[in-house]
Write a protein that binds this DNA or RNA. Structure first.
Lengths: 141, 141
DNA sequence: TTCTTTGCAAATCGTTTGCAGCATG
DNA sequence: CATGCTGCAAACGATTTGCAAAGAA
């Protein structure tokens, strides 16, 4: 995710309004590394801005995804997770318990995201390794 | 996805049954490169086995995902897509129209999937590049 | 026969939508 | 003051679940 200043400009340039809700959501996402779901964010933000509606949160999240500012991904737990980090990094996702952690650096040795591939203007990249986490391996099956 | 023979053994080893439905679903998935959704598959299989139920299809798909035989991913269109190819390859996903195509070879230069990362037993890998496809770029916004 | 899986239909629940009121530019 | 955004609640729709019947081992 770019810095918030840039988002403010983007919205204004499109004739949109910079509202308290958007700012709040952007700030909450900025630098977040917990791969939150919409519900996670809602639980976190509702106390701060009690009037906040889930619909508004979804609106803001969808905008960010369309702009390539935030990445959505399915961890296989039936919930959509959001990650403001669109740079080249990988996640480890457990197929059993759906835990998500960032993979160690050495796993994603391709730091640069090409601007364009096959005519697509590339805005974000997602990479995940699916497997069985140590805890689930220990628990066997 | 491994070959079907191996799946048959896997199910039997777990004390499961090799049913006509599972076989049908496995065969349909084998080598499929269209990134189908559950509905896509259902539409394709229902005529072949009219009694087939969506619930059964979901069961089979979820099994395959848990086994690391099939990869699920969210293309941002509100539908879950399945891909039996768990080897190292990337997809291009359009953030506007949600088209999905396989990326050209040269984009995924890391062919090998490590067996283990940070204690996780790795079964599958997913990589996606999100952006704006040529058609949507032409259409502007 | 025994135990798993299927099929049906209802239930679930995350996400989207419609619309009136409000706030931003 | 004009438009776009919010909040609410209802609508939606994909996926899951419960249970009786069917089928594999």
């Amino acid at each position: 995710m770019q810095r918030i200043e840039a988002l403010v400009q983007r919205v204004r340039a499109q004739g949109g309004k910079v509202t308290a809700q958007r700012m709040l959501i952007w700030r909450a996402l900025e630098g977040d590394q917990t791969h939150p779901t919409a519900e996670d964010l809602y639980a976190r933000l509702k106390p701060v801005l009690p009037g906040l509606s889930l619909a508004t949160l979804y609106n803001a999240l969808n905008e960010l995804v369309e702009w390539g500012e935030v990445r959505r991904f399915d961890a296989g737990d039936g919930h959509i997770h959001y990650d403001p980090d669109c740079s080249a990094h990988a996640e480890l996702v457990c197929l059993k318990c759906h835990t998500i952690i960032d993979a160690p650096q050495e796993v994603a040795p391709q730091p640069a995201i090409p601007d364009e591939i096959a005519g697509y203007r590339i805005l974000a990249r997602s990479e995940q390794y699916f497997g069985i986490c140590p805890a689930c391996r220990a628990a066997r099956a």
